[in-house]
C-alpha cells in the first residue's frame, strides 16, 4: 500500500508532538508551593506524657473530599505527636468489602486499638463486632455502627445540631424582618446525615414564625453539583433573605453560581468549615457570612481516645477512670468575629 510512508511520517510528527506535550505537562502536576501545616494544632485532650507503647489501627473511607482528607491528616498529625504511639493507617476505601478486608488485616496484626470511620456505618457493623470479640477495642468515628456492641466509644459530629445552629443563626439575623424567605442547598439526599441536618434546620426555623423556607434542592457535596443546583435555585427564587448550604466544598460551586447570577440580595451560611469558606468570611466581601462547623479535628480526638484506651487511662479534665462511651461534638457557628480562632482548623 502506497500510503504507508505517509502514515508513518505523520505518526512520527504526532508522536513527537505527544512526547513534548507530555514533557510540558509533567511539570504541571505539583500542588506544593503554598502548603504549610494543614491540620489543627490544638492541645491534646489526654496528658502528653509518654506512656506504654500503643499501636493504633486507623481505617477510613477514600479521601475523595476535602473533609475526609482533613480527617486523615488530623489523625496522622496527632499520632505523630506521641512518641509511644504507632499508627497503622490503611489505604482508604469506599467499597464496603474492601474496607472490611482492611480492618480484618488490622485485627490479624493485633493492633491495640482500632479507630474506624466506616464508609457505611451499618454495613461495617459486623467487622466492628468481630474486632471487639477479638479483644481489640474500637473507637467508632463519626458514622455510627448499627450496634453499640460494635464499639467501645463513639465520637462524631452532630448533624442535627449543625442544622439547628445554622437555623438559629439565620433566625437571629432575620427575626425582625417580616415575611423573611430562606433557601436551603442540601447535600447528598440519600445520606441519613443530610436528612438530619435538614431536620435540625427546619426545627430551628419553627421558632421564628416570620421566616419561611421557600425552596430546598440537594447537591452532591461536589463543586460541580453545587454550582448547578444553586444556579437553578437562584433562577427559581428571584428574591430571598438567607441561604444555608450544607457543605463548604459544594459551596465553592454555589458561590460561583451566585457570582454568575450577579446576586447579593441575601446572606449565606455554609457548613463543615473549609479554609476557603473561612477566608471568605474573614474577608467579608461577599454573601458568605458564617459557616457551621463539622470539625475534622474529631479524628485527632479519636487518636487521643484510642491512646487513652490503650494505656488504660481516662480523659484529662474528667473525673472518670475510663474514657466515655460516646462523645458528640458541638457545631460552632464561625462568623467574622471568631473566625481567627477557627481558621487553623479549616480544611483545604
Amino acid at each position: 500500500m502506497p500510503r504507508i510512508p505517509v502514515t508513518s511520517r505523520r505518526g512520527l510528527l504526532f508522536g513527537a508532538a505527544a512526547v513534548s506535550a507530555g514533557a510540558a505537562l509533567t511539570a504541571c502536576t505539583s500542588n506544593e508551593p503554598k502548603k504549610a501545616g494543614t491540620a489543627a494544632t490544638t492541645a491534646a485532650a489526654a496528658d502528653d506524657k509518654p506512656g506504654t507503647p500503643v499501636t493504633i489501627g486507623f481505617a477510613g473511607p477514600q479521601a475523595d473530599h476535602g473533609w475526609l482528607n482533613a480527617i486523615n491528616q488530623n489523625a496522622k498529625d496527632r499520632a505523630a505527636k506521641y512518641s509511644e504511639v504507632t499508627l497503622e493507617i490503611t489505604e482508604g476505601s469506599n467499597d464496603t468489602a474492601a474496607q472490611i478486608g482492611q480492618i480484618q488485616t488490622l485485627i490479624n496484626k493485633k493492633v491495640d486499638v482500632l479507630v474506624i470511620l466506616p464508609a457505611d456505618g451499618k454495613a461495617l457493623t459486623q467487622v466492628g463486632l468481630q474486632a471487639m470479640k477479638a479483644g481489640i477495642p474500637v473507637i467508632n468515628l463519626d458514622r455510627v455502627f448499627a450496634s453499640p456492641q460494635a464499639y467501645r466509644c463513639w465520637i462524631g459530629g452532630d448533624n442535627y445540631g449543625m442544622g439547628l445552629n445554622a437555623g438559629r443563626y439565620i433566625g437571629e439575623q432575620l427575626k425582625d424582618k417580616p415575611d423573611a424567605k430562606v433557601v436551603e442547598l442540601a447535600g447528598i439526599d440519600n445520606l441519613e446525615l443530610t436528612r438530619q441536618r435538614t431536620q435540625g434546620f427546619d426545627d430551628a426555623l419553627k421558632n421564628y414564625p416570620n421566616i419561611k423556607k421557600v425552596a430546598r434542592q440537594a447537591a452532591e457535596f461536589t463543586v460541580e453539583t453545587g454550582q448547578a443546583k444553586m444556579a437553578q435555585l437562584l433562577q427559581a427564587q428571584k428574591q430571598f433573605d438567607a441561604l444555608w448550604n450544607h457543605d463548604d466544598d459544594q459551596g465553592v460551586g454555589a458561590l460561583r453560581a451566585i457570582a454568575q447570577a450577579g446576586r447579593d440580595d441575601f446572606f449565606m451560611v455554609g457548613g463543615a468549615g473549609s479554609k476557603s469558606a473561612m477566608d471568605a468570611i474573614k474577608a467579608d466581601n461577599g454573601v458568605l457570612k458564617a459557616t457551621v462547623l463539622y470539625p475534622p479535628t474529631m479524628a485527632a480526638s479519636a487518636i487521643d481516645l484510642a491512646r487513652a484506651l490503650g494505656q488504660k487511662k481516662g480523659v484529662g479534665g474528667m473525673s472518670e477512670l475510663e474514657i466515655p462511651a460516646s462523645i458528640t461534638l458541638y457545631s460552632a457557628v464561625v462568623t467574622k468575629e471568631n473566625v481567627d480562632e477557627y481558621l487553623p482548623t479549616g480544611f483545604i
Binding site: 452532591e220 461536589t222 463543586v223 460541580e224 453545587g226 454550582q227 466544598d249 465553592v252 460551586g253 460561583r256
Partner: peptide
C-alpha cells in the same frame, strides 16, 4: 469549560 463554570478543579468532576 467546567473549570470556567465551577471556578475550580475537583476529582469528583464529571461524575
Amino acid at each position: 469549560m467546567l473549570i470556567i463554570l465551577s471556578g475550580s478543579g475537583q476529582n469528583t468532576n464529571g461524575n
